[in-house]
Amino acid sequence: MWDAFVAVFARDVLQAWRRRADWLTSIFFFVIVVSLFPLGVGPEPALLRTMAPGVVWVAALLAAMLSLPRVFGSDFADGTLEQLVLTPHPLTVLVLAKMLAHWLLSGVPLALIAPVLGLQFGLEGGPVGVLFAALLLGTPCLSLIGGVGAALTLGVRGSGVLIALLVLPLYVPVLIFGAGAVEATVAGTGAAGHLSLLAAGLLIAIVLAPWAIAAALRIALE
């Protein structure tokens, strides 16, 4: 089972490496969306500083969502998803491997770039560190919750827009605690509470999301 887990993970990472342009696109999308905000609201440093956590997080939500149709879409089209479902291993474990790969490719880069964007918005060292930590805890939630939406909309008409409709409302708690962690640090009240709630959410998502994703994939293949 472990071998299968590693195989799924390695295959997705290798595949993404061969098609790195696809993944880089959503990362650049993230950078561009964040950079547009100062142009829209003006370069007032105090305003930008208060907006920074929310702007970065909303952009992260959108960027994570943009990469979702790819997670199962190409597997569905080329028949590898059928082979995945028909292996004798528990589908939930294989799904977890796929979501881990998705997080590594779409979530981790966002967390790594976000501190630079935070500095652009005038955040200090402390809040920038918290922004990084919060994204590191929050983006796997985005991948897992998003995976449910991606699996439910497989092969469905207009699935791209539909994923947004299904997934964005479910992202609300992650957005609130993630952006809240940074805001709390700026306000000097400490981010420990927010970060532990994010971690708790991540645990719930790790336990529950693979079941929902696996069930949705089986339905999509029927």
Binding site: R11, L14, Q15, R18, R19, S74, D78, G79, T80, E82
Partner: peptide
């Protein structure tokens, strides 16, 4: 469907 990844 062949179940092959195009890029591998």
């Amino acid at each position: 469907a062949n179940g092959l990844k195009d890029d591998l």
